[in-house]
């Protein structure tokens, strides 16, 4: 069984099936790209994996354990962390405060240990602060550490979103269009960071609109169209498939 496995996942909103019988295997350490036209169910897929929605049919396994039907926090605890399509932040906090709130899963110490400020809590606190600095450097937020998160530009808010997901200690990172609203240069910067994150041993599932970005970063690509999987394979192969071109550009009518 694969690292993360989706079996016949269906998600229906009333009569509309946003996802229909989607099978997906994700191997440890890969960067999986998910593409598809608008409304093809990409974000629904992430919402289903992360527990925001419960699938109406099918099962999800992670590390050979069933995770479908669990609450988002239980899924997050198992190491599947997501980012959001829009800039979702902790209102009124600075960058470092957001990072410290998000560092919740970095700690092994229990709540009561932190309450009594035990030695282990203090030590762990130091390591976490070290990790925060590391991530803030990695994602180019060092100059903005003490700025209010809401005051950052769109691009940096996207980076903060990834940083907050990273400090939550993921083994699988679900990125929902990390490059929205960016020009090619900025998108390539993000791609570079995603590769670096992947090198740290994090499996990445990436939703992307921009084909160029995807070709550059993904080791495997899955194409969704109207809630079904129409292609799965190496980026170059997938992009030349007839179904994929049709899904994007429409069918030829004679």
């Amino acid at each position: 069984m694969s690292y993360l496995e989706l079996k016949n996942i269906t998600k229906e909103f009333g009569k509309l099936a946003a996802l229909e019988d989607v099978d997906l295997q994700v191997e440890k350490g890969e960067i999986l790209g998910i593409v598809g036209p608008n409304g093809s169910g990409k974000t629904t897929l992430i919402n289903v994996i992360s527990g925001y929605y419960r699938p109406t049919g099918g099962e999800i396994f992670f590390n050979a354990k069933k995770i479908s039907g669990l609450r988002p926090d239980q899924i997050a605890k198992r190491g599947i962390i997501r980012t959001f399509q829009s800039n979702v932040l902790y209102e009124g906090t600075t960058v470092v405060e957001s990072m410290l709130i998000s560092s919740y899963q970095q700690y092994r110490t229990k709540n009561w240990q932190s309450f009594f400020e035990t030695r282990t809590w203090k030590d762990e606190n130091e390591t976490v602060v070290g990790r925060v600095i590391e991530l803030v450097k990695l994602l180019d937020l060092l100059n903005d550490t003490f700025l209010p998160a809401e005051g950052l530009s769109h691009g940096y808010q996207r980076m903060l979103g990834i940083a907050m997901a990273m400090i939550a200690n993921p083994s699988v990172l679900l990125l929902d269009e990390p490059t929205t609203g960016m020009n090619h240069e900025e998108a390539m910067f993000v791609v570079d960071k995603i590769k670096k994150i992947n090198e740290q041993g994090v499996t990445v599932i990436l939703i992307e609109h921009n084909m160029k970005v995807l070709l550059d970063v993904a080791t495997r690509v899955v194409v969704l169209s109207f809630g079904t999987k129409i292609a799965d394979g190496k980026p170059e192969e997938v992009m030349n498939k007839q179904e994929v071109i049709e899904a994007y550009l429409g069918t030829e009518t004679i």
Binding site: S50, Y52, R71, P72, D73, Q74, A76, K77, I81, R82, F84, V88, L89, Y90, E91, G92, T93, E97, L100, I101, S102, S103, Y104, Q105, M164, A165, A168
Partner: peptide
């Protein structure tokens, strides 16, 4: 910190492991 997370953005907090 968890209280702050839960108050400031429940959806985000839940996806970061806070019950």
């Amino acid at each position: 910190r968890a209280f702050a997370g839960v108050a400031l953005n429940p959806v985000l907090a839940e996806h970061q492991g806070m019950h």
